[in-house]
Amino acid sequence: MRLMSVSIFLLLMWALLVSLSLTQGAVVLSLSDIWSVWQQGTLTEHFVLWNHRLPRMIIATLVGMSLALSGCMVQSVVRNPLASPDILGVTSAAALAVVGLLIYWPDANVHWIPFAALIGGFSAAGLLLLLTTKRLAEPSHLALIGLALGALFSAIVDYLLSKYPLEINGAMLWMTGSVWGRNWSHLPLILPWLMVLVPGAIYLCYRLDVLSLGQEKAASLGLKVTHLQVVTLLMAIALASVSVSVCGAIAFVGLVAPHIARFLMGGRHFPVIIIAMLLGAIILLAADIFARAIAPPLEFPAGIFVAMIGAPYFIFLITRYKHW
């Protein structure tokens, strides 16, 4: 019941953001304008609405959901409150792949950037699983190795950027994450993954609840613990890599959305996952609206506003939370 009411509230909030997202920006439209543009718009309005705002809104929603879900899955395996997709080293590996591409192959087609990020992310994940195969039962080990890989990759990125300072702005932009300039062509990069992985995650919810009782107990209840952990992590990695490949390394959504969802819903996985995905979508969509409507025609990277919206609310929750 609580799940129902919270999710309806969040859905309404999301709908409100959608309407803001379609109407606000450098060119302000009203809701009725949207209808008339649908009927017969000038070329400009048509472009703004259908080639620019609508795909951007959809991408922000999907990436937000995907990051939040990834965060839930990582946190259910690595039992550290700091756990987020970032500690798996996936984000930094993707960043390294992209920065490497920008620096060493400046003539490469920009359409390769998402694929470079995806390959980077998956290679890092492969390396991570390879290095931890024998000790998957120890989440803290996984976290340390993931952090180590991440640190190594970001150190190399820093080194490259200090050698080629001209690329700093572009790389920084990518590492902060932005929904600017995303269009319909990015949709096939993320939608199919979500259509498979979201039902998959829901299917695993019950098992993850059992896992949260502790590894021994879960094993005694007949759960294949290691198997479940690997599958969950792979899903988390896929979701994180896909999100990063589309929008750049947007941090914080994957950490904060699951935490907020848990503050609201308690420990069971199913409600947490649903609410976290809604929250992720809301946070990123709101961030993108801020990013382009706060001082038009200036556009900021949405990644900045993710933290500006997410962090204060999160801190507020932390200070209000009674059960410390």
Partner: peptide, 26 residues
């Protein structure tokens, strides 16, 4: 005082500051 609260608040604060700094740098 709970160490988890401290760590979480620290992470949130850090992310907030990092993003603002990055935005300014860009």
């Amino acid at each position: 005082m709970n160490p988890i609260r401290m760590v979480l608040a620290g992470v949130a604060m850090n992310f907030l500051l990092v993003s603002v700094v990055r935005g300014l740098v860009i």
